[in-house]
Amino acid sequence: MNTLEIKNLNVSIDGQAILKDFNLTIPKGEVHALMGPNGTGKSTLAKVMAGHEDYTVESGEILLDGENILGKEADEISHAGLFLAFQYPMEIPGVSIANFIRAARQARLPEGEDINAVEYYKELYAKMDSLKMDRKFTARSLNEGFSGGEKKRCEILQMAMLEPKYCVMDETDSGLDIDALRIVSEGVNHMRSEERGFLVITHYQRLLDYIIPDVVHVMYDGRIVHSGDKELAKELESKGYDWVKEEFASASA
């Protein structure tokens, strides 16, 4: 029950199959990395898991601790405990970070119950401090005018404040310089626990120098074609994705 389990997932867009009998199980307490060439379906997987409606789910199940979340609304999936750190976080003009996260926390409370503002800000500031975010950011419009690094730190801040059971991180390393990468990774590592599972989607191995995965999966053409330990990421880095294509193109054909 303590797993995020994707079973025989088939997803298409405009009649074109993107995910093909995709299977993956992430137990709580583990970090799984998902690597693969561009256009192989990694980001589609992340969005479908989060309940994005642009994709057609042909068949399959996504079981979060045994409960099927496939087909549910994005907010329900969030309440079930899945968090998606976006590759390109949206800019929301006029909505401050503090109010946005507060609304997300409020949405998790039973009707009639209100957030304790003092405790909320105390926690928010502590978590911002550890992500080396200026406290003045709380009043700024969400992601508006943020640098790439600031946006990703803001994603991790939201993740830390919402304490999900499973975190899906889509190309969190894109657009980060090495300092930001280190800070963001520390934030993620700080959240690693026996109570939480991670799926770290990345094109590059370098993120995995900071967030050491328990399992590495290689994705190609809509499915996982190979899995291994953290050494697999290094092998991929040295051999390149052409190796994956050559090795597994025939298998997936």
């Binding site: 006029g94 998790r108 919402l162």
Partner: peptide
């Protein structure tokens, strides 16, 4: 979608917008 992924319902998200 971004706001709803954080658990905020459609109408509340619209209100925030």
């Amino acid at each position: 979608f971004y706001m709803m992924q954080r658990g905020i319902s459609r109408r509340v998200a619209m209100q925030l917008m």
